[in-house]
């Protein structure tokens, strides 16, 4: 079915023929995405689809170009070449044409960052209220009416607090609501960033290494949160992750990048057994389960990537 959609839209990449691994309707169609920085080709002609209400993982060794894909999707970079179509309830958005903050505002693409970017000196609740800026701005009559404390704005703010409360409960942060975000433990900050992204009421959620630096227990909590978002909110999630236990455990569909190219694309089972992935990602000799890599690999890998981000 998704193949038909892709063909109907004039997809030119053979990658996009056939159903999406892991099932589901296509929500995001990336075609021939290429991003060059001067002479460096960070992403080289990558095409893939991500399905609605599914978790699509993008994995690959350090410097493979994963974060760059996110930056292109979320309006931080303008791709050199490529078509990024988002199927939105309001119609189709071509993300490569939307710039900067409008991607989040109009197209409803929310993201988190590889190195956490909260508003550290604002409270947890305030972080979640700021995420609902555009909605509240309208309710406050672009400040003018809000200055006079109109009822409409007060009600809108109460609603915003309710939504924040909902996500606080889901991310187990309710108790910390009035604390400064910067004082939270690391794992809580990671979850808060997810909660903040969800408070923008997005259609597509892009998470850049949300499990980096988490201990196994926190990692488990995060897995459950992501599954909850997928199943209860029927939301498509794009997930960059080094932690194989997370990736293999919860994703429906995995896209593997290496040196900016797509080297594999399939269900976790397919990718796990793909010789190209084992060669590029896990090292030549490793015939074991990819899980063997997780013990030491991801932590240090994530650290190295920490410095460079949008």
């Amino acid at each position: 079915m998704s193949a038909e959609t892709a063909i109907a839209e004039g997809a030119t990449s053979p990658d996009l023929l056939g159903p999406i691994p892991g099932g589901g309707e296509a929500q995001l169609t990336v075609e021939h995405l290429t991003m060059r920085f001067g002479g460096l080709v960070a992403i080289d002609d990558v095409s893939f689809q991500a399905a609605d209400a599914r978790i699509t993982a993008i994995i690959g060794p350090n410097g493979a170009g994963k974060t760059t894909v996110f930056n292109c999707l979320t309006g931080f970079y303008k791709p050199t070449v490529g078509r990024l179509a988002l199927h939105h309830p309001k119609g189709e958005f071509l993300l490569e044409r939307i710039e900067g903050f409008r991607t989040a505002q109009a197209a409803g693409v929310a993201r988190t960052f590889q190195n956490i970017r909260l508003f550290p000196r604002m409270t947890v609740l305030e972080n979640l209220i700021v995420a609902q800026h555009n909605k509240l701005m309208r309710a406050s009559g672009y400040t003018v009416l809000g200055l006079f404390g109109l009822k409409r704005y007060r009600e809108a703010e109460e609603k915003a607090v309710e939504l924040a409360r909902y996500w606080l409960d889901r991310t187990l942060l309710t108790k910390a609501a009035d604390q400064e975000a910067g004082n939270l433990p690391y794992g809580d900050q990671r979850r808060l960033e997810v909660a903040r992204a969800m408070c923008t009421e997005p259609v597509l959620l892009c998470l850049d290494e949300p499990a980096a630096g988490l201990n196994p227990r926190e990692s488990q909590v995060l897995n459950e949160l992501l599954l909850f978002i997928r199943d209860e909110h029927k939301m498509g999630i794009l997930l960059i992750e080094h932690d194989m236990s997370v990736v293999m455990g919860i994703s429906d569909h995995i896209v593997v990048l290496d040196y900016g190219r797509k080297i594999s694309d399939g269900t976790p089972e397919q990718v796990r057994n793909d010789p190209a992935v084992i060669r590029a990602y896990l090292g030549e000799d490793e015939e074991d389960e990819p899980a063997g890599e997780t013990a030491a690999g991801p932590e240090s890998a994530a650290r190295e990537g920490e410095e460079r981000d949008a």
């Binding site: 309006g75 903050f101 970017r117 508003f119 700021v130 800026h133 992204a197 923008t200 949008a310």
Partner: peptide, 17 residues
């Protein structure tokens, strides 16, 4: 609140629209 958020992290503000 957006002013303060901007002071804290402009990139994050952009990602929130």
């Amino acid at each position: 609140r957006a002013w303060e958020a901007l002071r804290e992290d402009e990139t994050a503000c952009r990602s929130l629209g």
